[in-house]
Design a binder for these strands. Structure first.
Lengths: 279, 279
DNA sequence: AGCCTTTACGGCCGTCGTAAACATC
DNA sequence: GATGTTTACGACGGCCGTAAAGGCT
């Protein structure tokens, strides 16, 4: 189970093709074929069906593990190299809904303390931000998501710290029948159409199996998303602090902080500011 | 960062010697030396000092990551192979303090349901049990430890579920000055001598820096440990359900359940029994 | 028939072991 | 000087690429 093999396996699983995976990794198809054969021989079970190329149950399992292992491997490398030379800069990664007034003031405080600090912000979807935190591209991250109360977000990186928890709501247009309700049953939600907004509020956040998507919004602007809901293009799930609406039972919106002791002094300072400030 | 390299690096770090690590892995010293050199070249920083062999700060970082990565790699392999053939047996791993009446009754219920079930119990310290869960040696595990309220235990495996939470206490002899106190300050504890009981209640559980150890107890019997405390050999930390004593502030004793969907039907059944029964 | 995966085979690079040099206590 | 790590070098094996064969649709 070489990381090399895992990487090409993930590539094949994602692309659904030996040949395009090969050119993505700049191998020949032959090499990819051999690597997959090696993995299957090693684990003693077929991982992929051919024609069409699809994952077997064992393959699905391996894909999950492999992607996690690869990002953790990257995280280990980044952490070690930063242990010798901690960056003086402060690059913050954010998912769109993780931003809050408290973060903004904490950041302002740090900027005031050290005037010449190179500080920047990167906004992206959860996978992008977590990956950037793993590789050291960013020094600290705030990642949001929906989960059961008091439960952490299922993140591939250890050391996440909850810094905020909020009830979650379903955003609906003003004239929508759900508006009259105080709580929502899951049965009501399976019938609805949802806005597919992978960056702001991914469909995978929904407590619904196989949600039906209406419009797709690729941007990161919350106001635009709310506008789309208002216009009747579909529903979405949002933290209560962002929008008014109907509370979704047994779910909270949670923001977690992702950093490591090696991420440098500015990151540590920001981390302290945010975690000490927990109510 | 081959797993192979990480494994020998961990061996060197643990043994503090290139040569004994080599014979443990059945390599030559030369091979070990080359592998470490390769790792250091790859990461661009020394990981070990020679004469004496010790970890540099970067090396300490890498050791943490490497051990986690290796057990996760083992977990991935076990999970995939179990995805194709889930075991029908039920082997339960337990740390000594994770046992409770509820587990006992749940296990009895399962045994009653399927009379011929091969079910066994393995007791060991946390590292041993987590490792066994990773490699598939056991199908389900209950692991205890001390942590802040509502926080999960820092486990190297994902998917842990809290099944019990309890206040923690410091066990002291009846005539100890602390007996009169309702709460304990950390300052009081730094002065004390502790019983080093790595299996039942490891010193790493203590909220104290560099605790001073008196006697060492290698066994897994809680009654013996309590007897040792009574006899004045030192103090220890225990869940309130096991011993009377003084509540330790800001800590809880927590039991988590460790299993995977591939661990077989009996494991799933036990898991359901335990998690549904959470108060 | 055409596209894509597998198999066969040759060459290269990497990694291990032996053995000698080197450093440290 | 003894113990233990590094370096030099030769040999084996593994892995990739080229090229031909094999299977589905």
């Amino acid at each position: 189970m070489d990381p090399h093999l895992l990487r090409t396996f993930v590539a094949v699983a994602e692309t659904g093709s030996f040949s395009v995976a090969a050119q993505r990794l700049s191998y020949t198809q032959s090499a990819v074929s051999q690597q997959i054969a090696l993995l299957e021989a090693d684990l003693g079970t077929p991982l992929l069906t051919r024609r069409p190329v699809a994952l077997t149950p064992a393959g699905e399992r391996l894909q999950r593990h492999a992607t996690l292992l690869l990002t953790r491997l990257a995280a280990a490398r980044a952490d070690v190299t930063r242990a010798v030379a901690p960056p003086g800069r402060l690059i913050i990664g954010l998912t769109p809904l993780a931003w809050s007034r408290r973060i903004s003031t904490a950041l302002a405080a740090i900027r005031a303390e050290s005037a010449r600090l190179d500080s920047r912000v990167l906004v992206g979807d959860r996978a992008r931000i977590v990956d950037a935190a793993a590789t050291g591209e960013i020094d600290i991250a705030l990642v949001d998501g929906f989960t059961a109360p008091n439960d952490p977000l299922p993140l591939p990186l250890a050391g996440a710290i909850g810094v905020a928890e909020d009830t979650a709501v379903v955003a609906v247009p003003r004239d929508h029948p759900l508006t009259a309700r105080r709580t929502v049953e899951l049965a009501d939600l399976t019938e609805a159409y949802w806005i597919d907004a992978p960056v702001v509020s991914p469909l995978t956040n929904l407590p619904v199996d196989g949600p039906r998507a209406g419009l797709r919004y690729e941007g990161a602007d919350v106001a635009v998303l709310i506008g789309l809901v208002e216009a009747g293009h579909g529903l979405t799930v949002l933290p209560a602090s962002v929008a008014d609406g109907v509370p979704l039972p047994r779910m909270v919106h949670r923001v977690e902080l992702l950093t490591t002791p090696g991420a440098g002094a500015p990151a540590a300072r920001l981390s302290a500011l945010l975690t000490n400030a927990i109510p």
